[in-house]
Design a protein around this nucleic acid. Structure first.
Length: 605
RNA sequence: GCCGACGUAGCUCAAUGGUAGAGCAGCCGCCUUGUAAGCGGCAGGUUAUGGGUUCGAUUCCCAUCGUCGGCUCCA
């Protein structure tokens, strides 16, 4: 669901159904325990369903889930009406005695401060309850008229998960039950089918099947090993990035993986980012850290000699390898790893040049998105919050406000739609991220474009302006192609393994029908290799059908079937990955065609 | 890191308180084939690791490691 659609969803019938289903589920869960034993927290509708969080005397099991679902159907069958009452805060607290989470919510509402997610509210809301059958919940609604409006054959409890109260890892951990609810059983089935289909695109599954990457317990969690096919993807992506960056006047640099501790103190990574860094290693009493980001080293390159305004904007690019100590539970296939190569660059510019440089990066996003046919994404403008200053964010409110306004204006002037998200900035400045979704619906930041007003100061970076005075540059950190890891994880799912020809690890497979055509197949292989096509003649003892099948499974874009006829005609029977056949294609014609597809990075076969 | 589930051959999965079996992949042979699996054979596992219970553990228990579903966090 996009952010824009959220407003409409809250007014929909489906939203009321799901919200009501959450209440029914809560009743069923509470009934499993002695009165007062089960504490319940919140239970909102979410995309495709709902959840409810509980604090229970014991852990729920999958068998409980079945029992809860069964009980829900009984409650639904009784057509209990949902009734709303507005009450005073005192009365509300009285009624929820022994329910600490509810009391906390009521106190939040009473102060007019926060909603059920702990988000600040503009005005003091009324306190209302919704009741059905024997269950009453603090709730602002809305609900369906009665439980019978929930279709008992269109609901399903999906999973049990842990979740922190108010999303705060320092608070108690609750048990969350996720459910899905629809209007009809057909919609439910379609949803479940869609989840199955999504699993087939999961990059962890396809990455294995297509021999792209692997993990080894001995190497370590979150440290992917790229197989040859993955190596090809990386090289193609780097070639693309280098080409585009060349066109946008970037200079390429290279920096080491290790740095002395002091550099990261100066950059602010220590302490702001320390939690995500691998612990230091000690060399003769000096501490070294593996780098979680490339920026400090690029700053030193900027500072390698005195700079003039004539040097600016200075754009330093590097596919830098970084290491971040992500918490174990945060790892996720290729999308969230501990070693990564970033499509990194740092742009040093004057304030006057800022808008143009920032928007040039946004334009670069668009160039890439066109090449990859990426259409579903959201630009997120992440800003600081005052309370985070000196804790999560460098302590300079004036520059935060100033740079945030610069970004806001630049995005508006460029007519780029974005959503603004407070309290998600980098420690050194505001940023615009591109959010995408994995096949299984998990949200990820793909590209990023960040302003940094802090590090240039702490690194004493300066250039002589045209008046001959020292001026501090702004720094833009940007990664339009994300990291190889996350981008490739994303692309595997985006293409469902069917990479465009230019990216495909194996671009063509020559398939002789009998051994008599082996020589001819090798000749075609040679011709293709000569124009740098990744091709293999499949001379194995399998029958042609089996060879086609294995090429199909590896999503090879072109299968060149050659039999007696083709040898005589100096042609190929071309089969595209999508099943299209072009028999009698001349060899020269095919050479031209594949070369064209590759050189233009065509999305078409 | 936290809550929960899971961990059998390269892959997908089966079985059992008496030291495991299939399909695919691999290797060898036969077949010489016209657009998604030709046939036969061989080989492959200290059942993640380390303890414990037991006459006996892969199966039961504990710990560790890893993976997965979430939470937190993020490129």
């Amino acid at each position: 669901m996009s952010y824009q659609e959220q407003e409409k969803y809250e007014e929909s019938e489906l939203y009321r159904i799901r919200h009501s289903a959450a209440h029914v589920m809560a009743q069923a869960v509470i009934e499993l325990f002695e009165p007062g034993e089960a504490k319940f927290a919140i239970g909102p509708p979410v995309e495709n369903g709902f959840y409810y969080d509980f604090d229970l005397p014991r852990n729920l099991t999958p068998d409980d889930l079945k029992a809860i679902e069964k009980r829900m159907r009984q409650i639904i069958a009784k057509h209990h009406p949902f009734e709303k009452v507005v009450v005073s805060a005192e009365k509300a607290k009285e009624m929820f005695e022994g329910q600490p989470y509810k009391i906390e919510l009521i106190e939040g509402l009473e102060e007019g401060g926060f909603d059920e997610y702990g988000e600040p509210l503009d005005e003091k809301p009324e306190i209302s309850f919704y009741s059905h059958d024997a269950f009453t919940d603090l709730c602002r609604g809305p609900h369906v008229e009665h439980t019978g409006k929930i279709n008992p054959s269109a609901i399903k409890l999906m999973s049990i998960a842990g979740a922190y109260w108010r999303g705060d890892e320092n608070k108690s951990q609750l048990q969350r039950i996720y459910g899905t609810a629809w209007k009809t059983s057909k919609e439910l089935e379609e949803h479940l089918h869609m989840l199955e289909e999504a699993k087939k695109r999961d990059h962890r599954k396809l990455g294995k099947e297509l021999d792209i990457y692997t993990f080894s317990d001995e190497v370590g969690p979150g440290l992917p090993l790229w197989l040859p096919n993955g190596g090809i993807l990386i090289e193609e992506l780097e070639a693309l990035a280098k080409e585009i960056e060349h066109n946008h006047n970037y200079d390429r640099v290279r920096t080491p993986h290790l740095t002395k501790e002091d550099l990261f103190h100066r950059s602010g990574h220590l302490p702001y980012y320390a939690e995500s860094m691998y612990p230091p290693m000690d060399m003769d009493g000096v501490k070294y850290y593996v780098k979680p980001m490339n920026c400090p080293m690029h700053h030193k390159i900027f500072d390698a000699r005195p700079r003039s305004y004539r040097d600016l904007p200075l754009r330093l690019a590097e596919y830098g390898t970084c290491y971040r100590f992500e918490k174990s539970g945060e790892l996720f296939g290729l999308m969230r790893v501990r070693s990564m190569q970033m499509n990194d660059a740092h742009i040093y510019c004057s304030e006057d040049d800022f808008e143009q440089e920032f928007m040039d990066v946004i334009a670069m996003y668009m160039e890439y998105f066109e090449i990859f046919n990426i259409e579903k994404y959201v630009m997120r403008f992440s800003t600081h919050v005052k309370e985070g200053l000196s804790k999560k964010y460098v302590d300079n409110e004036r520059l935060w406000l100033k740079t945030e306004e610069m970004v806001r204006q630049a995005m508006r002037n460029g007519n780029v739609p974005f959503v603004e998200v407070p309290d998600e900035a980098a420690f050194y400045g505001p940023k615009v991220d591109v959010q995408v979704w994995s096949a299984i619906g998990r949200e990820f930041t793909l590209a990023t474009n960040q302003v940094d007003f802090s590090q240039p100061v702490s690194f004493d970076l300066a250039f002589k302006n045209s008046a001959g005075e020292d001026e501090t540059p702004l720094c833009i950190h940007r990664a339009p192609l994300s990291t190889h890891e996350r981008l490739i994880g994303f692309l595997i799912e985006h293409y469902a393994g069917k990479f465009p020809v230019w990216l495909a690890p194996e671009q063509a497979s020559v398939i002789p029908i009998t051994d008599d055509q082996n020589e001819y197949a090798l000749e075609i292989e040679r011709k293709l290799k000569a124009i740098n096509v990744r091709v293999k003649a499949d001379l194995g003892s399998d029958r042609m059908n089996a060879k086609i099948r294995s090429a199909q499974k590896m999503q090879v874009p072109y299968m060149l079937v050659v039999g007696k006829r083709e040898v005589e005609e100096n042609s190929i029977a071309l089969r595209l990955r999508d099943g299209t056949r072009k028999d009698g294609t001349s060899v020269d014609e095919f050479l031209d065609m594949i070369q064209g597809k590759i050189s233009t990075r065509s999305a078409e076969l």
